[in-house]
Design a protein around this nucleic acid. Structure first.
Lengths: 223, 223
DNA sequence: CTCTGAAGTGAACGATGTTAAGTTAGCGGT
DNA sequence: ACCGCTAACTTAACATCGTTCACTTCAGAG
């Protein structure tokens, strides 16, 4: 599959065409191998049929290329989250559907998700912008839920908690796939409802309560 | 800081002494730089005052060295989780203290946590064993909670949900530290109580309920 | 003192990201 | 038709990395 096509030079004004070819080659490579480190500049260059330094004509370094790849792919998440909240009958359902779309996307694009959301925080600003975008969706839906009266409290805090929840599901399943995970949708819905209910309850179990009291309080919630 | 001490050769039976020196050098380097990639074999060897291939006398490859480092550090997590559940007055409190100890450990050792819990799942068995150990603690405490009557259901499922929850908090704060995170302990306790309450409630919000019905159900839970 | 085997080295290989300097060729101008 | 400019690309090299192989050194039993 290592194409030996030498690729014709682009015409005069079309130098930017190479950028697209490099980008799609890198995207394909990352999708095929699902491994960041096997997306080497040499592998990308070979697939495009071009020499390695040509990549530097359009991307500052390897990180910039990977960022561009992830940005492209996360565009799908952006769309999925928008659709999910658009199609939902109410704000709570919107939140649920967004959460589901989020974990589905993460598990469908595990290596992309890993690069953007589970990588070292050192510099690497574009990843943070992508993350901010995703967080923004959650924040909007949480705000809508507060407006609807189904949630109460600081929207940013609530959104961070929900985001941490869905991210926990997604990232742990990506990193530890051999654990006995239940089917994704059911597992997500269970956690989502639990967190939703728990956040709506707007109360905490104080420390130092006796075991009996804790049990009694929690039992009183049972359906 | 690149030690130029040539290090004396170990006496006859003490070849294994080098293993320890390499291990602590790697641990120090990882802690100091908080960056996996700057722990190169050459840097480790230089710090010990030994040549690079000597490392291979005691570690199969770089991954094995990093695994050993993480295993060593995660021993602290093991102890912290054991203490947390030992000191707690009841099973629910044990679970809470374990969760708190877990996120505290993760944020105190971010790069170690990243390597073990947020890395690519490819091979790398030792990381999975470490993860299994941590999961085992959660599972034990969940089982105790079920025995105490404060939780109900499949212990493995419940433990996975709780684990995903604490991992979500820890890993997202590690990967995206510039988000407006509230103070750790308070944030954790909020999420923990929410999840605890939600799981104890043992019910789900069905899809297709109207917004009013959802609001009414959740409102009925408020303190 | 010798000689053996444990303890450690030197030099090299192939792969990687990155840079500097050079080459090729599309295309408007004459 | 042919210049010549410059956009588009290449060749060659560098530094660094993990890893391997053949080689050396030296502590200490005999």
């Amino acid at each position: 599959m290592a194409s030996d096509a030498p690729r014709k030079r682009a015409p005069r004004g079309q130098g930017a065409a190479l950028r697209g070819e490099v980008l799609t080659a890198a995207m394909d490579l990352l999708r095929e191998t699902s491994s960041e480190e096997s997306v080497s500049l040499r592998a990308v260059a070979a697939r495009v049929g071009v020499s390695v330094p040509s990549i530097y004509l359009h991307f500052a370094d390897k990180q910039a290329l990977l960022d561009a790849v992830c940005e492209e792919v996360f565009e799908q998440l952006h769309r999925a989250l928008k659709e999910a909240s658009a199609d939902a009958p109410d704000a709570f359902e919107a939140l649920r559907q967004q959460g589901m779309a989020y974990v589905r996307f993460a598990l469908a694009n595990p290596e992309h998700y890993r690069i953007v959301m589970m990588g070292s925080p050192s510099g690497h600003d574009p990843a943070d912008e992508i993350a901010s975008g995703a967080f923004g969706h959650v924040l909007d839906s949480v705000t809508a839920c507060i407006g609807l009266g189904v949630l109460e409290g600081d929207p940013v805090d609530l959104a961070l908690q929900l985001w941490a929840g869905v991210h926990g599901i997604a990232s742990l399943r990506i990193a530890k796939p051999m654990f006995p995970w239940p089917p994704l949708e059911d597992f997500f819905d269970g956690t989502f409802c639990a967190v939703g209910i728990g956040l709506a309850a707007q109360t905490r179990i104080p420390v130092g309560l006796g075991a009996d009291e804790v049990t009694a309080r929690l039992n009183s919630l049972r359906a």
